[in-house]
Design a protein around this nucleic acid. Structure first.
Lengths: 126, 126, 126, 126
DNA sequence: GTGGTCTAGACCACA
DNA sequence: GTGGTCTAGACCACT
């Protein structure tokens, strides 16, 4: 079994991140039901309470909606999802630039370095 | 006073990151002496124990070395510093790609999105 | 379709509240027959069991009575209805005062704040 | 011992409400330290985990700030607190009006009913 | 000593 | 069967 979590970040956050991304890239679609807290717990080998904490966090982000007695569902509001995706994309880009900038790279160097990086990646995948 | 630290990451790590970057971008040069644990503590309003821990972490990365009775100094080994810089740059780029990829963006989209982002940033700074 | 229920309160209670108010403000009159459990279920898109539970709660408040084989009817006892209305009005006012008081507002401030509020509301509806 | 909680709402929410109001009405001041999770647990006779859930909720509302190894503190941002107070005041008033309105009372009736209510309350407290 | 995470297990209300 | 709450208790990292 592949190790699913690393230890430097709480499990509930790692799990939330993973599910969030599954939703953002469309692997889980609008309105779809997530597996129950208990089933997910078994699947990723984690206590159901921990899974529930994950679902609670996702609900606070409005990515997911819990309905008592029925289950937990991906939001059916496309607008919310789109805005979250855009927001996250910006955050990731900002973080990247911030980091590079603080290491002393100029905008040009960042651009260039990234191009090389992409191209190298492209070759690797051939 | 502006808030220097956020709460989601240990202060000693945030402080280590900051000093590390100051060194990487040359603000602190090879062999230069860092301020004492006490002085830094006062300056950033943090417990000296915490600063101590920061210096310990930096020493473990070989970015810094402490000399008994003299203080803590930036390493004077340029090679070490260069390799750390390169390593960190790769790590930051990898992290960026990983994140974007997991959100469902293709290499092309990442490249393009980033270009727009840089250009927009360039305009802002005019 | 507009969302009819929020998730923080049981659906059967939300539905009971709604029907109760329809009766209190005379939208459903003394002795009038309520739609069947099944019809209501279809109309508000809810499990008939849940509607059943709603009707049971309303019956326990003596707002409604079910007659075997005939259906569920608004009580025909005006006195009961009046006393429930008065009771609820007092409860709502008490709750309001309690809340404001616990937030640190004095009786005078509550009065004044409320006047402004009403007047502002009046203007909005012009 | 007076009963501190009723059963119809989760303890962690009731506790959060109570502390929130203590802060809003100035009983706990800007930047003040709350008792530790454990101490509060003992005081209100509740499991520390439950208290922590309370503190977490308050932190999510930006009313409170947790600092690792130091404790939990009332926010020191007066602006945040003021806006929360105003927001809550509006919410409470809105809720009140909504309720009365749904029971069939007009704005005038609400105003009048409330005046009587305040005056009666004033007499009681004599 | 402080907050934070996680588990195991019990119990409840809802649908 | 579903989510939600609560407890008891262990363990960890930070200050």
């Amino acid at each position: 079994m592949a190790e699913l979590f690393h230890s430097s970040q709480p499990i509930y956050q790692q799990l939330a991140e993973r599910i969030k991304k599954q939703i953002l890239r469309g692997e889980l679609t609008l309105g779809e039901k997530l597996p129950s807290v208990r089933d997910t717990g078994i699947e990723v080998n984690v206590n159901p309470n921990t899974v529930q904490r994950t679902y609670r966090e996702l609900e606070a982000m409005h990515i997911v909606e819990s309905r008592r007695g029925q289950g937990t569902f991906v939001t059916d509001d496309r607008v919310v999802l789109d805005s979250i995706r855009e927001e996250m994309k910006l955050a990731v880009m900002n973080e990247f630039f911030q980091q590079m900038y603080e290491m002393g790279y100029s905008n040009e160097e960042i651009k260039q370095g990234l191009m090389e990086f992409v191209n190298r990646k492209g070759e690797e995948n051939r």
